[in-house]
Design a protein around this nucleic acid. Structure first.
Length: 862
RNA sequence: GCGAGAGUGGCGAAACUGGUAGACGCGCUGGAUUUAGGUUCCAGUGGCCUCGGCCGUGGGGGUUCGAGUCCCCCCUCUCGCACCA
């Protein structure tokens, strides 16, 4: 028997203690269970803040899914760890003088406690921390392996540089051209940087998408990011120096006869050499302006085309005519060859440029073989047949393109090519708080990798921020770190002082979780072989073209060097939606918290600033500190308990949609759980006598309960598998609404016990503490997560009687009760027996009837 | 501009391959128990209505016996990419 009132607080801490003491959620990875399941939610960045409502949402859903799977007999492994390197800890150190190692350790201790309070099924024995030397030793090892296989290299490249934070920024840390942290406008700088050659895997990364169960949206994003396009490389010789050739990539080799000029990116390496003396001043001025232009200006598509003539000419390899070479910033140095053949008649950008600068426009593709150029006021980009193209005249575009590319190949002037938009992964950072890149620069031997047996290259504890030269890592100011000896010649040498992007750390963590203490390699290959790939991965869609691409690259590399038998790390992926909350902006006080607003009479959403009384602007925004719209989860945990909070989050809407936070419905969940709690108290029969699946009852009331339980078990089981937590809860509430009045009457004690036991098990993944408590109160053996999942009787899914909608002339006019699978004749008889429906049919001729058994009957009358 | 997705009661949302639109919950209305409840339970709750019905899933067309669901056009919003040759 249970106490009268549902009091979550004591109950919850009691069970968490019991779980921990009994090691309920530890998984023995040395075994190979038949049905093993590796469930992974993206690990956490340990910031000093409280857990976000988004963390609760995401982690709860994953935990529910994992619990439901375990209850179905799967052996589940679900770990959690810390993505602990990164810029915020370092900036915090600069501001407050607290060493990143200290603040990170403190944050981890704090976060660990908060995570534990969620009641999730994490196996804390496998916890890992990417900033621990035992971990980053292997991050460095990966770097060396990639280097060994020619997949890591150092080269000069333009990077995002924040002059205030004095560091390079990742693309995702640049928001609308400004530094995400300080708001300062980011500038482009050329710096020598380390890259991973992820582009070599472009095609494999595309192909692999076909083999994994990921949201289509995410696959599309990756495909677009990789950006495969088919076309040709064509080479244009310089008119004055035929040995020098400018390569271009084009998807329209068929239009080469219309290439009336060329454009190079301002950064193209040939620009300084081919610019003539007469044009040098203009070209240099243009290049300077292009370099100074902000990201926003350069990428604006509405901006008018600009450019400068280099004075040089190239020979179109097909028309053999000289064409002028220009530079313009609408050609990007980073895509293709950084140079284009311009075909103004058939490319809108080239058209605009040619019009502005008075360059010739030659039509070479026509819809019908006739000239139409005079009619055009913009480019004609569509397919057609070739004109003004010599021997290729009359051919359709596709065929002509193929032949032109082939001819270019046979003349040694290029040939068919596939180009990818994907760029190599810039991984070096001028930061302290990251894994040091394990390289040594020797004046005699050059860049020498640190031998594997000397790993890890330890991040030195002592460091002073703000002393490094611009563009240098703080590590450059630590002599004991920098000064070393060359592993090759033994002479004095200097260490690489840059550290790795934290995305490197998180590109292989899923493998490390399986053997976090392993010392003979990054992971125990046997355990990985048995448990990988991850069965179910859960995390934010914002990682679609970052982490989720990098991890796939790492995995394919490991596969290729024979370290793992699979080449995709995450077999199935789901994204959580974003939890947002209304944010209020006061014209005088800026962003203000909801608590500093007062409601406006007559409006459900408008609110005034309580400081000055002015009307605020209301935004539906992602929760953030700066907008003061974060959700204080502590209040709800205090008032309602963990189980209610978890369950409410899942009931707000669909998991992949997220939603706007609004606590007004949380009481409904508390009510629901309290009803389940009270129902458990109505069970009077011993646990051992409750059948797994009862015989179909004979009385109507019992049959109704029996069917409802069967249907609920079936639906909840299906919904939990497919992440439809909201509708699973709705189904359980429906069942509760049937059981409460049933229990209040004269229930069949065994049937009721079976119903309640099933309900408790269904609720348990959502409200694990309550589930455990009620399971125990029913007399069930510890733990409910390992109790066989409730069964359902397929016979209990269907009704004997069906309420059949009846339409007359396609309009719903009423319903009739008929036996299941009733024939058309039986249904029609029932309709005629219905006074109201019969009256409607009186005096009409039935011309047709459409009967969908058990669904509807439509009578067409005249 | 390109790509993807979404528009359903006062609110959050349901609706399998076209087949009773609005399940479930919040809120609201009424009632019962409680001589206190921010408790519990019961009933009702899309709009209009002459109480027989009529109208309703962003707007307009269409297909169909039947459309929230399929097709075409338009509007709005969200997300991603953005001069990608």
């Amino acid at each position: 028997m249970v106490a009268n009132r549902y009091e979550p607080r004591e109950l919850e801490s009691k069970w968490r203690t019991r779980w921990e003491e009994s090691g309920l959620y530890r998984t023995d990875l040395s075994q190979t269970p038949d049905e093993r399941l590796y469930v992974l939610v993206m690990f956490i960045y340990p910031s000093g803040a409280k857990l976000h409502v988004g963390h609760w949402f995401n982690y709860t859903a994953t935990d529910i899914w994992a619990r439901a799977q375990r209850a179905r007999g799967k052996t589940v492994f679900m770990p959690m760890g810390y993505d602990a390197f990164g810029l915020p800890a370092e900036n915090y150190a600069i501001k407050h003088g607290i060493h990143p190692a200290e603040s990170t350790a403190a944050n981890i201790a704090d976060i660990r406690g908060q995570l534990a309070a969620m009641g999730a099924m994490w196996d804390w024995d496998k916890e890992l921390n990417t900033s621990a030397p035992e971990y980053y030793r292997w991050t460095q090892w990966f770097f060396l392996k990639l280097l060994e296989h020619d997949l890591a290299y150092k080269a000069e490249a333009p990077v995002n540089w924040c002059p205030d934070c004095k560091t390079v920024l990742a693309n995702e840390q640049v928001v609308e051209g400004n530094c995400e942290r300080c708001g300062r406008e980011v500038v482009q700088r050329r710096m020598k940087q380390w890259f991973f050659r992820i582009t070599r895997y472009a095609q494999r990364l595309l192909d692999g998408l076909e083999t994994i169960d990921w949201p289509e949206k995410t696959k599309i994003m990756q495909r677009n990011w990789i950006g495969r396009s088919e076309g040709a490389e064509l080479q244009f010789a310089l008119a004055d120096a035929p040995a020098t050739r400018i390569k271009v990539f084009t998807t329209r080799p068929d239009t080469v006869f219309g290439a009336t000029y060329m454009v190079l990116a301002p950064e193209h390496p040939l620009v300084p050499t081919l610019t003539t003396a007469a044009q040098r001043a203009e070209v240099e001025a243009y290049c300077l302006a292009a370099r100074k232009a902000t990201e926003i200006e350069r990428t604006s598509t509405v901006r008018e085309k600009t450019g400068a003539f280099t004075g040089a000419w190239a020979i179109n390899p097909f028309t053999r005519q000289p064409i002028p070479i220009w530079i313009a910033d609408y050609v990007l140095a980073s895509y293709g060859e950084g140079a284009i053949m311009a075909v103004p008649a058939h490319d809108q950008r080239d058209w605009e440029f040619a019009v502005k600068f008075g360059l010739p426009i030659v039509e070479v593709v026509s819809p019908d073989g006739q000239e139409h150029l005079a009619e055009y006021d913009q480019a004609y980009p569509a397919q057609g047949v070739l004109i003004h193209s010599g021997e290729f005249d009359g051919l359709p575009c596709a065929e002509a393109g193929r032949r032109i590319a082939e001819q270019a190949a046979s003349r040694g002037l290029g040939g068919p090519r596939i180009n990818y938009r994907l760029r190599d992964w810039l991984l070096s950072r001028q930061r302290y708080w990251g894994a040091p890149i394990p390289m040594i620069n020797c004046p005699d031997c050059g860049a020498v990798p640190v031998p594997e047996d000397q790993l890890p290259v330890l991040l030195p504890r002592e460091v002073v921020f703000g002393q490094a030269q611009e563009g240098e890592s703080p590590l450059a100011t630590v002599p004991s770190f920098v000064e070393t000896v060359c592993p090759r010649c033994g002479g004095p040498a200097r260490r690489e002082t840059e550290t790795m992007d934290t995305f490197v750390c998180s590109s292989w963590y899923e493998l490390r979780f399986l053997s976090p203490g392993y010392t003979d390699g990054p992971f125990d290959p046997e355990v990985v072989r048995r448990w990988m790939p991850v069965s179910q991965y859960v995390g934010g869609a914002e990682h679609a073209v970052g982490h989720l691409l990098f991890s796939r690259f790492f995995c394919k590399f490991l596969h290729d060097i024979g370290m793992v038998p699979f080449d995709e790390p995450f077999a199935k992926l789901n994204h959580q939606g974003m939890i947002r909350r209304m944010a209020y902006h006061c014209p005088r006080h800026g962003w203000i918290a909801f608590e500093t607003t007062t409601p406006v009479e007559g409006s459900s959403s408008a609110r005034d600033c309580s400081l000055c009384g002015q009307r605020t602007s209301v935004f539906d925004a992602k929760v953030s500190k700066s907008k003061l719209n974060s959700v204080d989860t502590g209040v709800y945990l205090e008032q309602y308990g963990v189980d209610t909070f978890r369950t409410y989050l899942m009931f707000m809407g669909h998991f992949s949609d997220g939603g706007v936070w609004d606590d007004s419905g949380i009481q409904g969940i508390q009510r629901f759980l309290a009803r389940v709690y009270r129902l458990a108290g109505t069970v009077t029969v011993p646990f051992a006598t409750i059948p797994r699946l009862p015989e179909p009852p004979t009385t109507t009331a019992e049959q109704e309960v029996w069917r409802k339980v069967n249907r609920t078990v079936q639906k909840v089981g299906a919904d939990l598998t497919s992440f439809d937590f909201n509708t699973a809860l709705a189904a359980m509430m429906e069942l509760t609404n049937v059981l409460v009045p049933y229990a209040d009457g004269q229930p069949d004690p065994t049937l009721l016990a079976w119903a309640v036991r099933s309900l408790v098990q269904l609720v348990a993944p959502f409200a694990p503490h309550l589930g455990e408590e009620l399971w125990e109160s029913l007399g069930g053996p510890y733990s409910v997560v390992d109790a066989p999942w409730p069964a359902f009787d397929p016979a209990g899914l269907v009704e004997d009687q069906v309420t059949l909608p009846v339409q007359i002339g396609g309009k719903l006019k009423g319903t009739v009760q008929v036996p299941r699978d009733a024939t058309s004749e039986e249904c029609l008889a029932a309709v005629l027996a219905d006074a109201k429906l019969a009256r409607l049919l009186e005096g009409r001729t039935r011309v047709k009837e459409i009967h969908v058994p058990n669904r509807m009957l439509n009578l067409i009358v005249r």
